[in-house]
Computed example of a mutant assay.
Amino acid sequence: MSGPALCFEQVGLTLGRTDILCEVSLRVAAGSVHALVGPNGGGKSSLVKTLLGQTPHRGTLTLEWPGEQAGVIAYVPQALEFDRALPMTVDDFMAAMCQRRPVFFGLSPHRADAIAEALGRVGLLDKRRRRMGALSGGERQRVLLAQSLIPAPGLVVLDEPMSALDEAGAAIFERLLAGWREAGVTVLWIEHDLSAVGRLADHVTGLNRRVLFDGPPAPTLTPERLMALFSTRPAAAGLEVAA
């Protein structure tokens, strides 16, 4: 299934007395790779949480799926928090995330092939019986990427997926991104690596509580806009939108 277009209209979020998001309006084109960049605390993860229904917010958020049925949304967090002493293997984790059958019954025959294929795509098929706690941070991030492939998503939401990846892992991520784009999957991607955004994204939005710029990466990621984006205060309204 092709991915949806996303429309954020005047989205706001206030926690206590702090404005986390201030009238954020942006559109993510269907089937595009759309990157969100900005400083820590600038509201990127909060915007994703509004999309996933995890945070109450003001304004309107619309997913425009093609056809009459909504598709699958996959989410890849920045890191996996768990007790590393747990005797949970990679297969156990994939079973818990990708099937309805209880994990203690083992892999479902209906999901076993798909899980094996997903682990193969991220280069971890030979470590499927390794304990999750024994994996490196980059390997655990690859497992998170693998679980996002089952079932095939129409929308993928990525929260800094490259933060723990080594060079080999980054190459695997780039192949996955290219595959999603070729399949028409919509990707909303939070990323700090601006060089990767410049190479891989179709569109980029600078967010520091409010939208400071929005456009194709090459003409949009100028030094002046980036300086305003990563300053400690939200940038002036004069830099809000780039053509």
Results as ranks from 00 to 15, higher is better:
111 R>V: 07
222 T>H: 06
9 E>V: 09
200 L>P: 02
47 L>N: 07
110 H>K: 12
107 L>T: 08
56 P>K: 10
223 P>R: 05
188 L>K: 05
169 G>T: 09
109 P>S: 11
33 V>I: 11
161 P>L: 08
185 V>A: 13
46 S>G: 12
114 A>V: 00
124 L>M: 08
186 T>G: 10
64 E>H: 15
238 G>Y: 04
73 I>M: 15
170 A>N: 05
214 D>V: 04
86 L>Y: 06
120 G>N: 02
82 F>L: 08
163 S>M: 04
125 L>D: 13
36 L>S: 11
125 L>C: 05
22 C>D: 14
147 Q>G: 00
92 D>N: 02
66 P>Q: 09
240 E>C: 11
87 P>D: 02
139 E>Q: 15
183 A>H: 03
119 L>Q: 01
49 K>V: 02
91 D>N: 15
223 P>Y: 06
212 L>A: 10
133 G>H: 04
42 G>L: 11
232 T>Q: 01
129 R>L: 09
52 L>S: 14
113 D>M: 05
100 R>K: 12
188 L>H: 06
3 G>C: 06
243 A>D: 01
55 T>I: 09
133 G>P: 12
182 E>M: 09
183 A>M: 07
52 L>Q: 15
202 D>V: 10
17 R>E: 15
61 L>E: 14
65 W>L: 06
122 V>H: 01
6 L>V: 12
7 C>F: 07
24 V>Q: 12
142 R>N: 03
47 L>S: 09
188 L>G: 07
78 Q>E: 15
147 Q>W: 00
229 L>G: 09
226 L>P: 04
228 A>N: 08
111 R>Q: 08
125 L>N: 06
70 A>E: 15
218 A>Y: 01
117 E>S: 10
4 P>F: 05
112 A>T: 08
117 E>H: 09
219 P>W: 00
182 E>G: 13
118 A>Y: 00
65 W>G: 06
233 R>Q: 04
174 E>R: 02
207 L>W: 05
78 Q>A: 11
175 R>Q: 04
31 G>D: 10
134 A>N: 09
236 A>Q: 13
96 A>P: 00
58 R>V: 02
225 R>C: 10
155 L>I: 07
139 E>I: 03
227 M>I: 05
73 I>L: 12
82 F>N: 02
180 W>D: 07
102 P>D: 01
154 G>D: 08
225 R>H: 07
15 L>A: 09
148 S>F: 06
61 L>S: 12
180 W>K: 08
25 S>V: 10
29 A>S: 14
169 G>V: 06
20 I>G: 03
44 K>Y: 07
187 V>R: 04
18 T>E: 15
217 P>L: 05
215 G>R: 00
203 H>E: 12
150 I>D: 00
62 T>C: 12
229 L>K: 13
6 L>K: 14
196 A>S: 11
222 T>V: 07
172 I>F: 01
26 L>S: 03
234 P>D: 00
87 P>M: 02
130 R>I: 01
134 A>G: 12
7 C>Q: 14
189 W>H: 14
158 L>S: 11
113 D>R: 13
93 F>M: 14
51 L>T: 10
138 G>N: 05
221 L>A: 05
168 A>S: 12
